[in-house]
Simulated scan of single mutants.
Amino acid sequence: MPLATTHRAGLVDQVIEQLRTAVRQGEWPVGERIPTEPELGEQLGVGRNTVREAVRALAHTGLLEVRQGDGTYVRATSEVSGAIRRLAGSELREVLQVRRTLEVEGARLAATERTEDDVAELRALLARRASERDEGRWEHFARTDAEFHRAVVRAGHNGLLTELYLGLTEVVTASVAATSTITPGAEHVPEIGHEGLVDAVAEGDPDRAVAEARGFLDGLLARVESAPNGTD
């Protein structure tokens, strides 16, 4: 039955895309249980088996996690991030090395491609993270800092690089949180400012933007490597 098979595969793909979109848009946050198969089937107008195949496919990529007898939970916001989260003991050093690779190029592109709106967004995020830092709201600070770095990459207007970096949302946020508590004997270490990076982007100076981005990430790596446990 080739026609039926093709039609069924198309339905599964459509459900996969709708579930993926719901996760990425935050309809179901990371850690939240999604509706049951019968509920999803009713909402999407497809059979239960179609939903099951779609969920199974997304669980295989790491986006969802099926817990027998409990339900299906959101594990990550993208397949890329899900794959990273599945790596056993993914070390903080490795995360920072990948961040450096992407963010340095992102900073260079941002300095040549940014718009006035991009710069305004970066300055607004800097002000917000400074306020959260001063108030000691460290969880919010970590999320805003990660959002700032995504905004820098977006300002380069390279769709593929932005998509790749978006997949690192969870691990970037986790790395910010980890590197803010890594100095022995101190609850939080002095955070590394990004005003110089924003100024370089605003002034259209790619060399300085690269130096700024590489400089603070090298600083984070040095901080991690000098910590007692060597990594996280």
Rank of each mutant, 00 (worst) to 15 (best):
V152C: 02
L40D: 03
E37T: 15
A130V: 09
L102Y: 15
R24S: 13
V210I: 13
L109T: 04
L63M: 13
A88H: 15
V176S: 00
R128E: 15
T5L: 10
Q43W: 06
E191S: 08
T231H: 08
L87C: 12
I16G: 07
I192M: 10
T77D: 03
G10C: 08
L168T: 09
V176N: 02
H60W: 08
A110F: 03
V198N: 03
R223Y: 07
S180A: 15
S131F: 13
E225A: 14
S226Q: 11
E170Y: 10
P206A: 04
R143S: 14
P29R: 08
G136Y: 08
V46T: 09
R56N: 07
E170R: 09
D117C: 07
A107Y: 00
R8Y: 11
T169Q: 08
D134F: 10
A146D: 07
G71M: 02
S90N: 11
R143K: 12
L109Q: 03
V171R: 01
G196R: 02
P38Y: 07
L161M: 07
V66P: 05
D117G: 11
L217H: 06
R150S: 07
G230M: 03
V172R: 03
V55C: 01
P29S: 05
V201K: 03
V55E: 00
L125I: 13
G69N: 10
E135H: 11
Q43G: 11
V30Q: 05
V198I: 04
V55M: 07
S175T: 08
R99T: 07
V153R: 00
A202E: 10
L96W: 09
A111M: 06
T77L: 14
W138S: 06
P228R: 09
A59H: 06
Q68W: 14
V15E: 00
G167I: 13
Y73A: 07
T36E: 07
W28R: 05
E132W: 03
V210L: 08
A213L: 06
I84K: 08
V51L: 13
V104A: 09
L11Q: 11
M1T: 13
T72Y: 00
D145H: 13
